[in-house]
Nucleic acid binder design. Structure first.
Lengths: 246, 246
DNA sequence: AAGTGGTCTAGACCACTCT
DNA sequence: GAGTGGTCTAGACCACTTG
């Protein structure tokens, strides 16, 4: 029963056939037909299923690769991306000599609170709706370096309300995926400079008013829904970031 | 005489034929066969010249597009990129209400000096070699906002030593291209944080020691040679930048 | 109408990965 | 060796731009 055309790709308006095909495949991915990390059917199969030539199918897949939705591995197959892995927050900072340091995370606070207006707007929920707020302290070589305030949408990340945060490990996204089935696929970071408030300064063992770099992140899942709003602060003098433009 | 194979694309080692083709085309561009802004021959012609199928040639051109070396316009042709146009320095800052403001540039100083070690290393010349140093002040709505120190390699940008800088206009790269034939193709910006020195503070009408964002730029031409080293400083509180990660 | 790049096809063959 | 994606071909037709 897999030999039938599952989707008739027509590309009616201004869209190309491979564009429509890409959209159709994306829909099948979002519907959960191939879970994150799993392999999609082979080119030949997919092409037959949608009734297009191989080259057209490959163009469609190239689009999905471009969008970061899938990875293609020569000789292995086409895999749905499982989400951002690591803690790319530290790429904004350069502490110490930059040698292979390990970042340790500690959840300093976990509360269910009504979402402030700005957070609610970012999360796409109503202002005042319940949300989960974490405060997190990240240390390098035992020295506290970054403070984070993380807001999570609540019906969705309820699993994080229970259990011992100490067991979450140092990487947040992998745990978010494991505990809540929420895969972070894309993120937008907004960088600014400011000064440390009293509480953050105390946590970082710096004087109040010390200059700090602020990174405000919005993270999104495959479907494009915002699944996290995070504010990270660290010593401005340790901030260092490189951009390439073309 | 255009019907002969100009380049025999063989792709000897681990390289694909379209990869080798792209390299060959890039070489022809760098050699000045098609100057920046001009159109390359049509697909059919190029494919015939190099003895490959149309599809293969298109893959090669796709690589060049990816590298930002050429632009392809449906119905018009394939054009060699003429270089970065504008002053994307302001994208790091947000002054005032962000409405359509015009940035005005003034060259405050122009001197030939021996290049300091760091600058020489970036420019790829010997330390102490003569280089052209500009100081530039950029204002928005009449308010000084950014100070820039620009180092240029000297045999190459000698044309900037003469003439009235007031006639250069507000955009530097277009003038650099017009005056010296130097086309900026790629740039790398490194963002950091610091405090204003006395001279910069005076120029920006801010107190000495005021927190500032520092952007250190290296700009490169098509051939990959560094053609500019620039340090830009502005009020840290006006700094604002967004990064997307996937 | 002529010339350009964009899409699509159908098929052959190559290179990589696993068992 | 079987299965995967990567490369290459040769040709048809479509869509956009220009004279």
């Amino acid at each position: 029963m897999n030999s039938t055309k599952l989707v008739a790709v027509d590309a009616s308006p201004g869209q190309s056939r491979y564009g429509a095909l890409a959209a159709a495949l994306k829909a099948r991915i979002l519907a959960g037909e191939w879970p994150p990390g799993s392999a999609m059917p082979a080119e030949q199969t997919l092409a037959a299923e949608h009734g297009v030539a191989l080259g057209t199918l490959r163009q469609a897949l190239a689009l999905l690769v471009e969008q970061g939705l899938v990875d293609r591995l020569h000789g292995k197959g086409t895999f749905v991306r499982s989400g951002l892995s690591g803690a790319p927050m530290l790429r904004f900072f350069r502490f110490g000599d930059g040698s292979g340091q390990v970042s340790a995370s500690r959840i300093a606070s976990r509360k269910v609170l009504p979402a402030p207006a700005g957070v609610a707007r970012a999360l796409g929920c109503g202002p005042g709706d319940a949300a989960l707020r974490l405060r997190r302290l990240r240390s390098l070589d035992g020295v506290p370096r970054l403070v984070e305030e993380i807001w999570l949408p609540l019906p969705r990340c309820a699993a994080l309300q229970d259990g011992d945060p100490a067991a979450w490990g140092d990487l947040f996204y992998p745990h978010l995926a494991a505990a809540c089935g929420v895969h972070v696929h894309r993120a937008v970071d907004e960088i600014g400079f400011g000064q440390l408030g009293a509480a953050d300064a105390r946590a970082l063992e710096l004087p109040t008013g010390h200059p700090c770099a602020t990174v405000r992140r919005q993270a999104f899942d495959l479907a494009g829904h915002c699944v996290e709003v995070r504010t990270t602060r660290g010593d401005a003098h340790a901030f260092q970031y490189t951009v390439s433009i073309t």
